[in-house]
Design a protein around this nucleic acid. Structure first.
Length: 657
DNA sequence: TGCGGATCCCTTTTT
DNA sequence: GGGATCCGCA
């Protein structure tokens, strides 16, 4: 997006901001001290504005370490700093940045003692959190007849929502899961025990990272002051997707200087489901007296026919900061709305169009297919493979969530966190003839030895399980003998140990073994095992396994398949939005909830605004849907807001071709 | 106590 | 199509 042309420098060598930015962007970039709210419409140069502001501050002599840039993904913030460095110089790479969660991790590592974990802590991901909850859930037995306890995933999201929305558990149950009202006391007990267990294990889940950072700042004024002094300028990207705790953290860090710039677009708020509150944007001027508000409304991404459609899509939304995007670029054809004979016809339509565009010289890299939920692309993936089009899939199941990767990681975790019950259970139950009961017994015995993972070598165990455990003992002894920073060697030992187990358990073990090889390649880059483990939890590779991690993935021309959530902030020449079918998009689960429906409207808006030159929205006619046990046949209700003459409406049936 | 098979459920988005 | 759960066998 930033053209590295010859005209961006002034005669004195400084960056020619006036020339490179429009008046609104220029004002935001050169804004001095105090609170600033930038409402940035889709494609209005938000990233550009943040990038130039970083460069400008550093150019003006602000020490880069005193600038804090919080953004949504680490990739996004690294990209901004990289671009700022290209604009100015390498100093921009010194800017502190990352996600709220990785920032919290960095700060809390420094002050672990103050939050009650003198030896540090382990970050657990959603799956670990669910497993821990499940252990507790099982202790409570199967509850009453007719009143089953919620499943682990439901419990986890219940607890998470209560934390992130700062509401009581009872309110969340009442609002979102009224059918579990009768079990609310049991659920509360599970929640409390979950908190206790996390404390005992020195576990922090994603929510705890934010909560603990907030508590640290609230309860330890000397820490807060030190940090507030350190970060002179704070910038927050995607502010519409922050929750209450994150907004409070920003306030605490910014006070009393309040040199805080937040950038966001209330029309693109798509994370309410995890507690984000787009009202944070609306409230920002109330939190910070004297806030300057700047709106960026000129769109540099999409051609006018696409903007006409996206403006129509978002028009019915009840948003507070209204804006109307416009572009000065002319031309472009109407976006297409394509009904297809069925699901497979939809996939074939996409493949046909992609083949056509490729023959016209458009690289696959400039094309994306976007969808509401990860499984919506399954049929398309088959067709793409058949047609021989390489693609990378982003979002949905992650590499690091697959069982074989979690298995390998569990073996590493017990070496540095020998009290980690979850990882021990996982490791032990991979051994033949060891199930839940034996795993628990052995774990307690190791714990009693009190000397880390090597306790397994000396613990007194019942003779029955001994022969099968021998290999595991050898592994632990071998890992223990390695120097502490030999991260990749540790991984290699685990792989050697795990390979026979993998071969026995999975039909597709060759593919999974390749995944583990890739994991080892990632480990090569680390000097500390705990850094590697934290990063795998906080910023796991976002692409599905088997893809994208290998070095050749960068050079090969591939098309992108992505959930809309993972497509946020990105853009392509050509964008297909598939499954624009009522019941799929919006999801049938949102149909009864007005707030959820509004969020889905913003979601389709985010999807459509990713397109630069060509936009296709497709939906299959008449699909039998298992989840609702009904036939879905209405196009997405969001399309009703788009006047007919703004789109080129077509029908596609491969049988008629 | 572990494990494999059968059967019933529900099936979003992510740090 | 995958997880949770139950049951019967080793």
């Amino acid at each position: 997006m930033i053209e590295l042309g010859t005209n961006q420098r002034l005669p004195d060598g400084g960056i020619d901001y006036r020339r490179m930015l429009n008046p609104a962007q220029y004002e935001a970039v050169t804004f001095g001290k105090g609170p600033l709210l930038v409402i940035a419409g889709a494609g209005s140069g938000k990233t550009r504005t943040l990038t130039y502001r970083v460069a400008r501050l550093v150019e003006a002599g602000v020490a880069p370490q005193t600038i804090l840039l919080l953004s949504f993904t680490r990739k996004a913030s690294q990209e901004m700093l990289r671009r700022a460095s290209l604009l100015l110089d390498q100093r921009c790479q010194e800017v502190a940045g990352g996600t709220f969660h990785s920032f919290a991790n960095a700060i809390l590592r420094r002050y672990a003692g103050k939050i009650g974990f003198p030896q540090g802590f382990t970050i657990i991901d959603r799956a670990d959190s669910e497993d821990l909850i499940n252990l507790i859930r099982k202790e409570f037995g199967s509850a009453d007849e007719g009143h089953p306890l919620p499943r682990k995933a439901t419990l986890a999201s219940l607890f998470s929502r209560a934390v992130n929305k700062n509401e009581s558990l009872e309110d969340i149950i009442y609002e979102e899961y009224p059918h579990f009202s009768a079990q609310k006391d049991l659920i509360r007990q599970i929640w409390q025990l979950y908190g206790t267990r996390k404390q005992e294990h020195h576990f922090l889940d994603y929510d705890d990272l934010l909560v603990c950072l907030h508590r640290l700042l609230k309860e330890h004024e000397e820490v807060r002051e030190r940090l507030a002094l350190q970060y002179e300028y704070i910038m927050v990207d995607e502010y519409q997707d922050t929750n209450r705790i994150q907004a409070d953290i920003v306030s605490l860090l910014a006070s009393p200087r309040n040199n805080v710039m937040v950038v966001g677009d209330d029309a693109q708020s798509i994370y309410a489901f995890r507690g984000a509150n787009y009202k944070n944007i609306i409230d920002f001027p109330n939190r910070f007296a004297g806030t300057r508000i700047i709106k960026l409304e000129e769109n540099y991404r999409s051609l006018q026919p696409i903007l006409d459609v996206t403006n129509a899509l978002i028009a019915p939304a009840a948003e507070k900061y209204s804006k109307c995007l416009f572009t000065q670029r002319g031309g472009g054809s109407l976006p297409a709305l394509v009904a297809t004979a069925g699901e497979n016809a939809q996939s074939r339509f996409i493949v046909r169009e992609i083949a056509r565009m490729r023959s016209q010289g458009l690289p696959l890299q400039r094309i994306a297919v976007l969808f509401r939920a990860s499984f919506h692309s399954f049929d398309l993936e088959l067709e793409l493979n058949r047609a021989g089009f390489p693609f990378v899939k982003v979002g949905g199941f992650k590499f690091s969530e697959s069982a074989h990767i979690k298995d390998v990681i569990a073996h590493l975790k017990i070496m540095i966190a020998p009290r980690d019950r979850l990882s021990w259970y996982r490791v032990l139950q991979l051994v033949k003839k060891i199930g839940p009961q034996s795993a628990q017994r052995i774990f307690e015995a190791v714990l009693a030895e009190g000397k880390g993972a090597t306790g397994l070598l000396t613990a007194k165990l019942k003779s029955k399980s001994k022969p099968e455990l021998e290999r595991l003992k050898e592994l632990i002894a071998a890992m223990d003998a390695l120097p502490p920073h030999a991260v990749a060697q540790q991984g290699a030992l685990v792989l050697k140990y795990y390979l026979p187990i993998l071969q026995e358990q999975y039909d597709d073990h060759p593919r999974r073994a390749r995944d583990i090889e890739q994991l080892l390649a990632i480990m090569e880059r680390y000097e500390r095992l705990d850094d590697f483990l934290s990063d795998m939890t906080l910023e796991p590779p976002n692409t599905s396994f088997g893809e994208g991690l290998a070095a050749d993935a960068i050079t090969e021309d591939r098309l992108t398949l992505s959930t809309i959530h993972s497509a946020k902030g990105l853009e392509w020449d050509t964008v297909f939005i598939i499954w624009a079918l009522d019941g799929r998009f919006p999801s049938y689960q949102s149909m009864e909830k007005p707030d959820a429906l509004e969020e889905e409207r913003r979601l389709i808006y985010v999807a459509a605004t990713r397109a630069q030159h060509h936009l296709f929205i497709t939906y299959p006619q008449e699909i039998y849907d298992r989840a609702t046990q009904s036939v879905l046949y209405e196009p997405s209700r969001f399309l009703e807001a788009v006047p007919q003459d703004l789109m080129d409406c077509r029908f596609f049936d491969p049988r008629n071709m």
